[in-house]
């Protein structure tokens, strides 16, 4: 969100995410700050009596894009909900920025797979939601929402209701809503899982584009290995016994190191 003109200068492909730029965020009060580090120490997660994950050990560095891949039912979403503070850990510890996670916080915005928007609020009012929760004055709130709605390419649809939008458009709104509050981390739960291939590619490009201007840590859950390779700084592979491996993706522009990528892809599939 540094400035709109910068967008035009962006080249497609994977940005060098480790060269971090501080988000200025239009000077929203109480917002921003460096990306949040996460640490799971022997975390056991589950619902009711059933353990979904045991002994999870994972470190997420501030500002990185960590993609968690795993088969359906491997507990990817459970892990993400725990990081969001929606699900308390039953064993071990979950730390965000060095502090134990005890509940949800505006610092850790979440993007859901689908239907995370409030259906009675227009696009504009959905995007304003985190700011109005925080008590940001109306005019400032409207300006920030406007900017983000434009940023995700929905300027013409700002007054529509979610039911009047396509799946891809709804995810654009969710992205804008998550980022407008300048969170220190964005947790994304298969956000493009329900989209068709073309829309999904568009959304991935948009995501890479907007993440460029933030310093937020991103934890992105998917079952799609190619999506993981495209977006990730590092990929965590989740199996039934917890995190099986954390693999670093090769640096540099997409396609420049095709062999390394193919190699990594093989390794991820092996771990799965």
């Amino acid at each position: 969100m540094t400035s709109l003109s910068q967008r035009d200068a962006l080249t497609p492909g994977r940005p060098a995410r480790r060269v971090m730029r501080r988000a200025t965020a239009g000077g929203l009060p109480g917002a921003g700050g460096a990306g949040l580090a996460f640490r799971l120490e022997g975390a056991g997660l589950g619902y009711g009596r059933d353990a979904v994950l045991r002994d999870v050990e994972l470190d997420v560095a501030p500002g990185e894009v960590m993609v968690v891949v795993g088969a359906s039912g491997s507990g990817k979403s459970t892990l993400l909900r725990a990081l969001a503070g929606l699900l308390p850990s039953r064993e071990g510890r979950i730390l965000a920025g060095g502090e134990q996670v005890t509940g949800p916080s505006a610092d850790r915005a979440m993007v859901f797979q689908d239907d995370g928007l409030l259906p009675w609020r227009s696009v504009r009012r959905n995007v304003e939601l985190p700011l109005s929760i925080r008590g940001v004055p109306r005019r400032e709130r409207e300006r920030a929402a406007e900017e983000w709605i434009e940023r995700v390419g929905l300027a013409d649809a700002a007054d529509r209701l979610p039911r009047e939008l396509s799946g891809g458009m709804r995810q654009r709104v969710q992205l804008a809503r998550a980022l407008v509050g300048v969170p220190r981390a964005v947790l994304m739960d298969e956000p493009f899982g329900a989209l068709d291939a073309q829309t999904r590619a568009d959304m991935q490009r948009l995501l890479l584009d907007v993440l460029r201007d933030t310093s937020a840590t991103v934890v992105f859950v998917t079952h799609d290995v190619d999506e993981a390779l495209l977006l990730a700084d590092r990929v965590a592979v989740l199996g039934r016994t917890g995190v099986r491996a954390v693999l670093e993706t090769p640096d540099g522009e997409k396609g420049t190191d095709a062999a390394a990528r193919a190699n990594l892809r093989e390794r991820i599939l092996e771990e799965l």
Binding site: G85, R108, F112, P130, I133, L187
Partner: peptide, 20 residues
């Protein structure tokens, strides 16, 4: 899901009541 969304955006119980 709606309640989760509001809570992860920093909403309290009161916010959940009024907004969801």
């Amino acid at each position: 899901l709606w309640e989760d969304a509001v809570r992860t955006l920093g909403g309290s119980r009161r916010h959940v009541l009024w907004n969801v």
